[in-house]
Design a protein around this nucleic acid. Sequence first.
DNA 1: CTACGGATTTTCT
DNA 2: GAAAATCCGTAGT
Length: 223
Amino acid sequence: MHRITDRAFFAQDALTLARALLGKYIVHEVDGEALTLRITETEAYLGVTDKASHSRGGRITARNRIMFGPPGFAYLFLVYGLHWCFNITCNREGQHEAVLIRAGESVAGTATLLKNRGLDGPAGRSGKSRKLSALADGPGKLAMALGLGKDHNGLDLTDEALNPTLYIAWDEASLNPGPIIEDERIGIDYAAEYRTKPWRFYLEGRVVSLTKEKRLQRKQRHV
DNA sequence: CTACGGATTTTCT
DNA sequence: GAAAATCCGTAGT
């Protein structure tokens, strides 16, 4: 597992980086343990013209200011007043683009990841396998599993000295992650003509966020 | 299995 | 005041 410290990797445009992040890893080291998720689903948010992006119109607020800085920084924001979402700033500074990490699969630190999600209790009706698939199948769940929140907003993912505990990494398996599917983004009904842009990317056959479509597919499978 | 609503902070879509 | 880059529990099929 190799940490990505080259800012040029994050300086790519959001659509390119969203694809490039699939199969790579988010690592959060807590108390000497490397909580690690394989990234399986991402979404690209572009700059001033993207009506779904927090940086639309070029207006800077207390929430979105990290999007207006350099690439390779963690952008954490609160949705619906409850859930934190982990994003990575990208492209050249001044483009204010970012990639949202929507889903991931546990690679290391599974017990702690489950605990952070409150899934470490006695096994209920839903079996252990179902719990694992629900560990990080959505942006809010993913941030909660890794223990990410307000304190991590603005961390430089490339800086090993200032930020030794939160970063993106790759290994041999990352070089060929498998087929990538592109689809519409989720939860942005307000974004007019940008609502249906195919700017969500995921790895075929791996964990993806729970959407209406996925629930529908599950239903059809049972018929 | 589906439908619905509640939680709760930031922005103005 | 309303809606938001969401998740979960409950109630009704």
